[in-house]
């Protein structure tokens, strides 16, 4: 045991905070909780980790059956099944992260009320372990692309740009939701509803350029911050000839709307989390 003769300096205790507590420790905690969360999710299941990959594919199977085989939609869209599964995997990350993060602080109540650690670790670890799932799912998706004969293109390597933007946006939103839920449980109900709306108001089942969409609705959907991400992923991964967001909404001004919303979401997420983090232990 080290000797305690060295002089120690008095420093103020400011109470819990979103970020304080040392970068190294924050990272260690973040990594440990994310990895254990990810591991725990599948430890007690027979198929284990394969559920993580299986889930979006099964979901894809059902949706594809209904949309393509029953409703006969997607024929005119290039590589529609490929686009559908890519979109589903990406949206699943968004949905899982935000809905898990929403209850993350309250589900860790005993820890929050009894231990001192940077509060940011909680929503971040949710986001990180979901990001691990996302990456592993994407590996599965790309393997599938190669098997069905989609030609690999150099622009596939640009996908991480979209993923990074997606992760930042999702994480900021998760931070917002996690502390908002502590203040009011209504947020939980509202978010479940909003997620359902977002599923249809995001170009997941359909691309934005199909003629069936009236212009007025298209501009609303295009304002959704997730839309340009999915549209860009489509251009880089599935169909180089697909129209860009700027073309879709007819101008840079229109494309700036989802960007602006994203920035607002990010700022609001950080701001609210930073403001509320010191008090969450009392509010729980």
């Amino acid at each position: 045991m080290s000797s305690r003769s060295e002089t120690l300096e008095l420093r103020p205790i400011r109470g819990p905070s979103a970020f304080g507590g040392g970068l190294r420790r924050t990272w260690d905690l973040l990594w440990l909780t994310s990895v254990t969360d990810f591991r725990l999710r599948y430890t007690n299941t027979l198929l284990g980790y394969s559920w993580s990959v299986l889930k979006p594919f099964l979901f894809f199977g059902i949706i594809y059956l209904v949309i393509n085989q029953v409703l006969r939609f997607g024929g005119e869209v290039k590589d529609y099944p490929m686009l559908l599964i890519l979109n589903l995997v990406i949206f699943q990350y968004f949905q899982e992260t935000t809905s898990t993060a929403l209850r993350s602080i309250s589900s860790k109540e005993p820890m929050v009320r009894k231990m001192q650690f940077p509060r940011i670790v909680i929503p971040l670890s949710v986001s990180l372990s979901a990001a691990i799932s996302l990456l592993s799912n994407l590996i599965g998706v790309f393997l599938l692309f190669l098997v069905v004969g989609l030609d690999p293109r150099a622009s596939w390597l640009l996908l991480p740009v979209v993923l990074l933007a997606l992760i930042v946006l999702t994480t900021a939103l998760s931070m917002f939701l996690s502390v908002a839920y502590v203040r009011s449980e209504d947020v939980g109900q509202a978010w479940t509803l909003l997620l359902r709306v977002l599923f249809y108001a995001t170009p997941i089942l359909y691309p934005l350029d199909i003629d069936a969409i009236p212009d007025s609705i298209r501009s609303v959907i295009a304002a959704n911050p997730l839309s340009p991400l999915l549209e860009q992923a489509r251009i880089w991964v599935i169909d180089a000839g697909a129209p860009s967001t700027v073309e879709l909404v007819g101008g840079v001004m229109g494309a700036a709307v989802p960007l602006l919303i994203s920035v607002v979401v990010c700022v609001a997420g950080f701001w609210l989390f930073n403001r509320e983090a010191p008090r969450v232990a009392e509010a729980l």
Partner: peptide, 14 residues
């Protein structure tokens, strides 16, 4: 323990 934050005053520790 830095679980709550004081509304007023200061706490210092070495």
């Amino acid at each position: 323990a830095s679980v709550y934050r004081a509304d007023a005053g200061s706490i210092r520790i070495a």
